[in-house]
């Protein structure tokens, strides 16, 4: 049995690098035909919940290749967290040595800490990301658009449980962005594999992160396949984010990602896209492009918004319905 110790995972280049280190280990277990893989999460002191969408995608991908993955942990706080956001449940991950037991004492302790945190800003968090508000981990079939839409509506409407105070306009643009990302995956991933989603709200930072992962062919291969344009992975992502570019033929479109980019720039938020071996990040209107030394089996899109944003997203002047065409 291969044993792998996962370290902290934040939402940045190094966080994805850590997940790709795991991917390499999973891949090597497949290569040597070692079907049992033990994932040790005991050492984790920081794991940003939205990254569950990416971790979940990876584990599901290698489970489908025949690996049996079990969780090895004596870190009950991390374990409770993964249970609370339904990560273990949806991936059917089992603890290695015992039957599943909910550690009620730890869970209650955590709930008290969360409550304390929410009501008292003087509370100092031992595991900040673990105590924030999580948006449930979910996986969807590629044709489950209606279910995904219902999940997004339930999670991100005025009055949704745990959601910070946000303007109605901001919420609408955020929901639309997530739906556009899902549709983009359906159209371009060229796969029947599931899509994974998870989010996290950071009250102190007034920041909401949401991540969607598909296990498709990736942006680089999609561009190559559809329009025979060969780009390196990070340039392929950059190409897809430019206004005039689309891989569609004989039909207009390709606006979805560009609209998200405009929205995030205006909100002063962040987008991260990891596809194949490419890393693309937009923050403070600056783009960072990097390359990993191995490929992610699909595409991850993360959007992060500033929830305190009170910008009006309407145009400067009213649009006359008679001037649309």
């Amino acid at each position: 049995m291969k044993h792998f110790v996962l370290n902290n995972v934040a939402t940045n280049y190094n966080g994805f690098k850590e997940l790709l280190r795991l991917k390499n280990a999973l891949e090597s277990a497949i290569k040597v035909d070692d079907k049992n893989f033990s994932l040790d999460i005991s050492k984790i002191t920081w794991f940003e919940g939205n990254m569950c969408a990416c971790l979940g995608g990876l584990l599901a991908y290698f489970k489908s290749q025949g690996l049996t993955i079990s969780i090895n942990s004596d870190n009950s706080e991390v374990e409770s967290y993964f249970r609370r956001n339904h990560f273990f449940h949806f991936l059917n991950l089992l603890k290695q040595d015992t039957t599943l037991k909910v550690d009620e004492e730890t869970l209650n302790k955590l709930l008290k800490l969360v409550s304390s945190y929410e009501n008292n800003t003087s509370y100092v968090e031992p595991f900040p990301s673990m105590n924030e508000t999580t948006i449930e981990f979910k996986k969807y079939k590629i044709n489950d658009l209606d279910d995904f839409q219902a999940y997004i509506k339930e999670s991100f409407s005025l009055g949704s449980k745990g959601l910070p105070s946000m303007t109605k306009e901001l919420l609408k643009h955020f929901r639309r962005s997530l739906l556009e990302i899902f549709l983009n995956s359906v159209e371009h991933a060229d796969t029947q594999r599931d899509i994974f989603a998870c989010g996290q709200f950071f009250p102190k930072k007034q920041q909401l992160d949401f991540c969607i992962t598909d296990l498709g062919i990736g942006i680089k291969n999609n561009i190559k396949r559809k329009i025979n344009l060969v780009l390196n992975p990070e340039e392929a992502i950059n190409w897809a984010m430019q206004k005039a570019n689309t891989t569609r033929k004989n039909e207009s479109g390709g606006l979805g990602l560009k609209l998200i980019r405009e929205f995030i720039e205006r909100n002063n938020g962040r987008i991260i896209i990891v596809s194949d071996a490419g890393y693309w990040e937009l923050k403070n209107k600056q783009i960072t492009k990097k390359c990993f030394d191995c490929s992610f089996p699909g595409t991850v899109v993360l959007i992060e918004i500033n929830t305190a944003d009170t910008n009006s997203y309407a145009l400067k002047s009213e649009i006359n319905p008679n001037s649309i065409f």
Binding site: Q149, K172, R175, E180, L183, S252, G253, L255, G256, L259
Partner: peptide, 10 residues
């Protein structure tokens, strides 16, 4: 309309 995407309108 509650939610609408560019893909739908396109």
């Amino acid at each position: 309309i509650e939610d609408v995407t560019s893909r739908f309108l396109n």
